[in-house]
Every structure is written in C-alpha cells, then in structure tokens.
Amino acid sequence: MLEQLQRLQTHIGALKTRLETVENENRSLLKEKDNSEEKSHAQIMHKNSIITHKQDEVDNLTEQLSALQSQFQQLNTDASALAERYGRLEKSCTDLKTRFQEILAERNELRIIKEKVLNEQRHAQQEITDLHAERKRLIQKNDHAKAKVEAIIQRLAILGTEQDHHAQEIQQLAHPTENNEEASS
C-alpha cells in the first residue's frame, strides 16, 4: 500500500505538474483569446469602417449613376430629335436637289428657246433688211418707170398736140365752114 500511496503521490505530483502546465496553457490561451478578440474586434471595427466607406462610395456611385442615366436619357432624347431633324433636313435637301434639277432643266429649255428666238430674230432682221433693200429698189424702179411714163406722156402730149394740130388742119380742110364758125364764136 505504501507503494500504492507513493505511486498515487507520484501520480498526484505528475497530475499537479500537468495541472499547472494545463493552467499555464489555459492562461496563455486566455491571453491569446483576449488578444485575438481585441485583434478581431479591431479588425471588425476596421472592416466596419471600410464597409461604411465603401457604402458611402456605393451611394456616391449610385447617385452618379442616376445622374449619368438621366444624362443618357437626355442624350438619347436629343439624339432622337437630331435624327428626326436630320431626316427632315435630308428630305429637304433631296427636295432642293430635285427642284434644282428642275430649274436647270427649265433653264436649258429657256436657253434653247432663247437661241431659237434669237435665230428667228436674226432671220426676221435679215428679212427686214432684204425687204428694205427690195423696197428701195422698187421705189427706184417705180421712180424710173414714173419718169419713163412721164416722158412717154410728154411725148404723147407733144405728139397728140401735133396730131391734134394735124387733125384740125385736116378737119379744116374737110369742113372749112365749121372751123370758121368755131373761130368766130
């Protein structure tokens, strides 16, 4: 029994030593746990501040996104209005091109008509010039014919008076008494 008692004492000593070791370990573990808790609490606080900062950034970015989305919608509206306006301008441009081509065609037709009228005017002017020359020639011819007719009339008058004179002489010779009566009256 003594032996058993010694063994028990040895076991108790070993258990005490072991208990002290375990208590020391427990204390160091508690210190570590406290240190870990402090560290984790500090880390949690740090992470919370980072989360708060990130949340503020997210809120800022959300506001910026809302502003940018409204700008995007405004730009889309402006782009639609500009596209519609561009379409109207393009249609107007096409209409203007068509009208310009029509005007060019009309101008070309007017040029052709102008050339035709100018050509006709030149021909008419030439005809007028020719007619004036013809008139002048005819007037000269008429004057020449008139002069000839007058000369003929004068010759005939001269001849007529000579013939009348000869006829009177013949009548006097043929009817001497009638001539005497005419001369006395």
Rank of each mutant, 00 (worst) to 15 (best):
E38I: 10
R107W: 04
H165P: 00
A79H: 03
V117I: 14
T21I: 13
I50N: 03
N26E: 13
T177P: 01
T21E: 15
R18N: 15
E20W: 05
M1T: 11
V58A: 09
I158L: 11
E162L: 07
F100D: 01
Q74N: 14
E23I: 10
N26A: 15
A157L: 08
Q140E: 13
I50Q: 08
G13R: 11
F100G: 01
L65C: 05
T10Y: 07
L89N: 04
E169R: 02
I50H: 02
L118M: 11
S80G: 07
K97M: 09
Q121L: 12
E3F: 07
I103E: 06
Y86V: 14
K31C: 04
K31G: 10
F72A: 08
G13W: 01
L65R: 09
R27S: 14
K54N: 06
A151D: 07
T129A: 10
R99M: 10
R7H: 13
L19S: 13
K146R: 05
L118D: 15
G160K: 09
V22R: 04
L8V: 13
E150L: 01
R111A: 15
V22Q: 12
T161S: 05
I128K: 05
C93R: 12
T98C: 00
K136L: 09
Q168S: 04
A42W: 02
R135F: 10
K97W: 05
Q172K: 08
K31I: 08
R111D: 12
N180A: 05
N76Q: 14
R85N: 07
S36L: 15
E109F: 08
E20R: 14
V149H: 03
Y86I: 15
E38N: 09
K141I: 00
S28Q: 14
H144R: 04
E25P: 00
P176M: 09
